[in-house]
């Protein structure tokens, strides 16, 4: 039995995950918690949010996020990639900045638009 706190929503349910019984989850208040508990012990993932450089815009940084959660172990490698990127304004909200980031299947996408400035 492993004890976890579900981080999917602010409710923060305390989960018990039974590793010996097919990662059966108890303590969750909704199905998303069961899925989280199962994944967290086998292949934990996180959505990465960070910024990338922008030139020629009203701001010099663009907030970005991965379109889906990526393996936790790749977070720092993904940060390195994001920090090497520079995009030119204008940027549209939701615009894909990097396709298939590190082969994870997730895209790095713009969290807002940035007008030319």
């Amino acid at each position: 039995m492993k004890e976890l706190v579900c981080i999917v929503c602010p409710r923060g349910c305390r989960l018990q995950v039974d590793e010996e019984n097919g990662y059966a989850v108890t303590g969750n208040s909704c199905p998303r918690g069961a899925e989280y508990g199962k994944n967290e012990l086998q292949h934990p993932t996180r959505v990465l949010t960070t910024t990338v450089r922008v030139t020629g815009g009203v701001h010099s940084r663009l907030p970005v996020k991965t379109s889906t959660a990526i393996p936790k172990a790749l977070l720092f490698e993904a940060m390195e990639m994001a920090n090497a990127i520079c995009v030119a304004a204008p940027v549209q909200p939701g615009q894909v900045i990097v396709e298939n980031l590190l082969g994870t299947g997730a895209d790095l996408i713009a969290g807002r638009g940035i007008a030319k400035g």
Partner: peptide
């Protein structure tokens, strides 16, 4: 919200996990 680039906004309202700028947007 413009500086809160992390996600965790809008789970109640939009049933989606948005970043601060996305929620404001």
């Amino acid at each position: 919200l413009n500086q809160c680039i992390h996600s965790g906004f809008g789970l109640q309202r939009f049933r989606e996990e948005l970043t601060g700028p996305e929620y404001a947007g």
